[in-house]
Amino acid sequence: MSLINYISIVAIPIVIFIIIGNALREKVAVFDIFLKGARDGLEIVLKIFPTLIGLFVAIGMLRSSGVIDFITRVVSPVTSFFMPNEILPLAILRPISGSASMAVATDIIKMNGVDSFIGVLAAVIMGSTETTLYTIAVYSSSVKAKNTRFVLFASLMADITGVIVSVIIVSKIFG
């Protein structure tokens, strides 16, 4: 554990050290170049801010109105064939909200025990999937693209694969 902890603490400083160190060795105007890049970053965030406002509010409404709980209740008879019911709220929330799914995952792990089948499964699903809708919205709006074609479908296929493989692997581990 301590090694993994250490790696995650030193990863970012080491990456910065290598990049800046190399620039110094190659004698480029490090700070001027940095400023140019940082200014680009400002523009990127300004471009995606309206998207974030729209998305956060809409998803907050979905959760607070109880629609998510309702969907969970409706689809659970079908999904219970290949997925434990305890996991379902996490699988539904995961693609649309990072913070909400993290809260739900923590809750599931606490309720079922951190080293139990359900607890481990929730952690594996959390680790192997992304907040798909947010990623698509932010990436698309950064280039002002309105027509996103099949990107949602392809990403959700990847997410569903991630969840199903997680269930299979963790089931194998717990025999």
Partner: peptide, 27 residues
């Protein structure tokens, strides 16, 4: 410009797959 190109879609899909060596947050 208003439509995602093939390469953009590939980049987004790869990013939603969350490839990582150490899932630090969950750990």
């Amino acid at each position: 410009k208003s439509t995602l190109s093939d390469n953009m879609i590939m980049l987004i899909v790869l990013n939603t797959a969350s490839l990582q060596v150490i899932p630090t947050t969950v750990i």
